[in-house]
Amino acid sequence: MAHSTVNSTNISLNAGTELHPTNVSSVVMDIPEEIFLFLCMFSLLENILVVIAICKNHNLHSPMYYFICCLAASDMLVSSSNLGETLIIFMLKKGVIKFEHTLIKKMDYIFDTMICCSLVTSLSFLGAIAIDRYITIFYGLRYHSIMTLRRVVIAIVVIWLASLVCAVIFIIYHESGAVVLCLIVFFLFMLALMVALYIHMFALARRHARNISALQKGKSRRVTPHQVRANMKGAITLTMLLGVFFLCWGPLFLHLTLVVSCPKHYICHSYFYYFNIYLLLVICNSVIDPLIYAFRSQELRKTLKEIIWCSW
């Protein structure tokens, strides 16, 4: 992940080689490891609490919250990866431990695989939540027959397995520009898909808003105002999650795009210099997501409070 630290034997832990290939300048802005450690530990604690809360509260046992639970697990993956790597870098820098270069390279690959898997799963589960909200709004009467527990479990297993396979392939062929390009295309495709779903959902919301008075007068009972508000609240929550994801991961994907398109241009090199900032933003995404869950869901916020108070 190129935290740009080197131990006394000049062996660096340059994880993220697929993000920062050899033909790109390795000179990057240095950020204190303590900042990475703090954010990673805080994020890990937050997301663990979210997973526990969803598992504990039976009112949160619905497809959307199952996907949110997996999104939190994905955030835990990226936090754990950064935390483990930062700890090793810190200990190498202080001379507490010494590893052979081959062992360091293997650890790089493990950490990179975790980060790439987290990226693919985060995008996939954001897409799954968007599809869930779409079905809720447009096929509300058939929702429970469409989003069965069996289908949700299958979707979750497929996403995790496919993400792991993609991450391994990405790390093995990290020097190939085509592989990096595939990841960029996947990122843009998922964003385009979710934006299209949101536009359709919010267009329907406007129509529902115009018909609220008619619903209240009893002219139609298919959708109640309460259902409309609840469905759109879920869509707004997902919009916030997507916006934060784009802001936090966007700079890193721009970095990848420049790595493929202009790795030797001086303007691109000036952007590569801030690589560690982009990694820091990725960790910030895993810190912010649980705050959005808690802020938007009263039930989840209540459960989190109970867990925190009981732990004291």
Rank of each mutant, 00 (worst) to 15 (best):
N7W: 01
S8V: 08
L19H: 09
T22R: 10
S26H: 13
V27W: 00
M29S: 12
I31S: 04
P32N: 13
P32Q: 10
E33M: 13
E34M: 04
L39A: 06
M41T: 08
L44K: 02
V51C: 09
C55W: 15
H61N: 13
S62L: 12
Y65N: 14
S74Y: 11
V78S: 13
G84C: 14
T86R: 00
I88A: 09
I89M: 08
L92P: 03
T102N: 14
M107Y: 13
C116N: 15
C116W: 14
C116F: 14
S118Y: 09
I129P: 04
Y134W: 12
I137R: 06
T148R: 10
V152L: 09
V153G: 02
V157T: 12
V157N: 05
V158R: 06
W160C: 10
A167Y: 00
V168S: 02
V168P: 00
F170E: 04
I171S: 07
I172K: 10
G177I: 02
C182I: 15
C182N: 09
L183R: 11
I184A: 07
V185K: 07
F187E: 02
L191N: 09
A192D: 00
A196K: 12
A205P: 02
N211F: 12
I212G: 03
Q216A: 14
K217H: 11
K219D: 06
R222N: 09
R229H: 11
L241H: 08
G243S: 12
C248N: 01
L256P: 00
L258W: 04
V287R: 02
I292E: 09
R301I: 03
L304S: 07
W312S: 08
